[in-house]
Amino acid sequence: MTAASIKIPVRVHGIVARSSRTRGLWLLVLVAVLALLSALSVTIGTRDVAWAEIMAALGGGQETIGQAAVALRMPRTLLAVLSGAALGLAGAIMQGVTRNPLADPGILGVNMGASLAVVIGVAWFGITSAHAYIWTAILGAGGAAVFVYTIGSLGRGGATPLKLALAGAATSVAFASLVIAIVLPRGDIAGGIHAWQIGGVGGATYDRVVPVLPFLGVGFAISLLSARKLNSLALGDDVAAGLGEHVATARAVASLGAILLCGATTAVCGPIGFLGLVVPHLCRTLIGVDHRWLLPFSALGGAALLLGADILGRIVARPGEIDVGIITALIGAPFFIWIVRRQRVREL
Rank of each mutant, 00 (worst) to 15 (best):
V146D: 09
F125N: 10
G126C: 11
G155R: 00
D323N: 06
S5M: 12
P105W: 00
G88N: 12
A190G: 06
G202W: 07
M55K: 00
V316K: 00
L300A: 15
R76W: 02
R18E: 12
L261C: 12
L225G: 08
A50K: 03
G236M: 04
E245K: 00
G158Y: 03
M74T: 13
S19G: 14
I311N: 01
I193W: 11
R18W: 05
L162G: 08
P319F: 14
T64N: 05
F336M: 09
L295I: 03
I326D: 10
R11D: 14
R314I: 05
G106H: 07
V33Q: 01
L312M: 11
R73H: 02
P161L: 05
L300S: 08
I198P: 12
S38W: 02
V201S: 10
L30H: 00
V29H: 02
A85Y: 07
S41R: 02
R344V: 02
L28H: 02
I326R: 01
A92N: 07
A169I: 14
A204H: 06
F297R: 14
L305K: 09
V81C: 05
A159T: 07
G24C: 09
A57N: 12
F220A: 08
V209R: 03
L275H: 03
R344T: 05
G158M: 09
V97H: 07
V29S: 14
A170Q: 05
